[in-house]
Design a protein around this nucleic acid. Structure first.
Lengths: 174, 174
DNA sequence: TATTGTTATACTCTATAACTATA
DNA sequence: TATAGTTATAGAGTATAACAATA
């Protein structure tokens, strides 16, 4: 018989019997996220010739039709301003987003999806939704709700741990 | 009042009310993982001047005291062979791991932690464990078990979706 | 022929810091 | 002074492909 089964060939093989349940949970959480993320990245690259950060930025814009400032995008995507400039430049050159003047503050832009960008994003979002549905198809509706609820608590705690109990922004904390 | 609360300034603001529960679950899963991962990366950088991929590679070696071949590391860490060579080279130059000849196959090495590497890794692992315990301290023991169990199903399904039902390795599928 | 590992290359994402323009 | 955004730079990680050595 072979020395390792497929399910052992991943990060979880790191866990020792002596390690606490929290560590096992973290590695399982990480494995799940990485598997789904790899699937999404693969699909975005093969079917749409794009990347996850670009998709994420467009998803933020789709959610805010009036547009978002660079600094808003920086906070929401939890990356530095220079990154936002770089990714935005790419998307502008490809025609998917546009910079629009902000009335009353000549330092800022509103970044918006173009009409072509909306169409393009909607196509990606449909495919994305299918990949995600497939990734969770082993769970019942109730299990999905339970998971969602438990992860709410994790999110709350992890956020506190990362940024502390004050009101500073995420990017400032990093 | 401010337009956004802190908990809205993240990826989950992408979700629309019309989107299915699975999509909400995925974004929450991603947010949780990213928050904890940022905390771990920050700690590894500030306290140990190292990175997560390097830590992960050493963790694999610590789990396999007899050593692992490059190809094993490639599969377990789900990255290409060239990356393993690069990261291993760094760790060798820093004295934390060593390449050891494999009897009977002159193409391969066994990569092992050095004595100094074991000491160094154990220090990191202690700190890592604390960061993880803190990240999940909002959950009861039972909730941790429930989460772990539900994520087992997610892992299984996501793995099938990513690589298909056959027996090929992860890296081959990517 | 297939496998193991290395090398060369290029690309994406990332942060930091210096800078300009504006508030 | 502080904020918004850009630019320049450097570094890490990643994949791919060509390659050499060995099985």
């Amino acid at each position: 018989m072979t020395s390792t089964t497929l399910t052992n060939i991943d990060l979880e093989s790191r866990v020792h019997a002596a390690h606490p349940d929290q560590l096992r949970l973290w590695l399982r959480l990480l494995t799940c996220t990485q598997l789904i993320e790899k699937r999404v990245r693969l699909g975005l690259r093969l079917e749409f010739d794009t990347t996850l950060p670009r998709f994420d930025l467009m998803a933020q814009l789709e959610k805010s039709p009036s547009g978002l400032k660079m600094v808003d995008l920086s906070k929401r995507l939890m990356v530095s301003g220079g990154n936002i400039t770089a990714i935005t430049d790419q998307l502008v050159s490809e025609g998917w987003v546009q910079r629009v003047d902000v009335e009353g503050d000549r330092r800022s832009w509103k970044i918006q999806l173009t009409k072509a960008g909306k169409t393009y994003f909607n196509q990606m979002a449909k495919a994305h939704e299918i990949w995600i549905l497939e990734s969770f198809e082993g769970l019942s509706k109730k299990e999905i709700q339970t998971l969602h609820k438990l992860l709410a608590q994790v999110k709350h705690t992890a956020l506190q741990q990362l940024i502390g109990p004050d009101t500073s922004t995420l990017t400032e904390a990093l």
